[in-house]
Simulated scan of single mutants.
Amino acid sequence: MTASNWDISITYLILAHDNPARLQALIERLEEDPSAKIVIHYDQKSPRHEYKRLIAVNEKKTNVHILPKPQRVACGWGEFSIAQATLNLIQYALNLPEPSDYFYLLSGTCYPIKPLHELKVYLAENRGGAFIECKDKSWIKDGMCDDRYRYHHFLNFRRNPWLFRRLYWLQRDMGLIRRLPKGINEIRFGSQWWCLPFELLQNIVEEILQSPEMTRFFKTVWIPDECMFQTLVFKHIASRDKIVKTLTYYNFDDCGQPEIFEKESLPKVGNDYFFVRKVF
């Protein structure tokens, strides 16, 4: 394969909320690809001095973009805020000059396990593929499945577990099942870490922004980052064989808790994984 055939451009979208030193190490690894763009959302709840330090270290770099305060979101696990932060990242990245061929969503705890040029070769060989999980509810290992979206979830489960459950049980007992948004026939699930081509991602974001019904629906879904993009990719791709598994390796136990890795002992995985998640 000639160099021109694998000259794929990638924008890395990073959701981070702590440990600027670890995040900076990830940025520097991604910069090994001279054509890469890096766009970072640093959680609005994080200490101000961490955010300012991150900007100071990277302010002279033309390939690193850190979302300014108006686009930063205070994120809470299970809330729409994480999906909103992701949308803000995408919108910012899509408006950069010369949009990339692919957009790869990472967390601040992700880390590459293969040279980045091998990822570019793989994307070129599978050009047009959407590297995302779009599974049925069997993907969920423990706890609530369909009821994540069948009922409204207004509160953060971790901050208000008792009231969260009471509101859920009340809706369930009263039979207040929600309707899916127009055009959505089923909800699909999967890891929130994906790699999507430009045109597909642009179409999905346009639909979200132009459909108040779509936004209202996912705003009260529990853990929407594990179903919103997955559902819309499934809707927009006509050929199911274009939906390929995620390129980021992760592992959950039977209770849904993620496995933690260290840089010195990264897992040995297949040739079609390029990042690993939860590296400390």
Rank of each mutant, 00 (worst) to 15 (best):
A3D: 01
Y12P: 02
A16K: 14
E31C: 12
E32R: 14
D33W: 13
P34S: 12
P34Y: 05
H49M: 00
Y51H: 10
K52T: 01
R53G: 14
V57K: 10
P68C: 00
E79G: 11
S81I: 08
Q91L: 03
N95R: 15
P99A: 13
S100D: 09
D101L: 10
S107K: 09
T109P: 05
C110P: 03
V121C: 04
N126R: 13
K135N: 14
K135W: 07
C145Q: 12
C145P: 01
R148W: 06
H152K: 12
H153F: 08
F154H: 10
R158V: 02
N160M: 14
F164S: 01
R166S: 13
R166D: 02
Y168R: 06
R172N: 02
L176I: 02
P181I: 06
K182E: 09
N185C: 05
N185I: 03
I187Y: 13
C195S: 13
L196Q: 00
E199K: 10
L201F: 09
V205K: 04
V205P: 07
M214R: 03
T231A: 11
T231E: 07
K235E: 11
R240C: 00
D241E: 15
T246H: 02
D253Q: 00
D254S: 09
D254G: 07
C255S: 09
C255R: 14
E262M: 12
L266I: 10
V269K: 12
Y273Q: 10
F274E: 00
F274M: 01
F274R: 00
F275N: 09
K278N: 09
K278W: 02
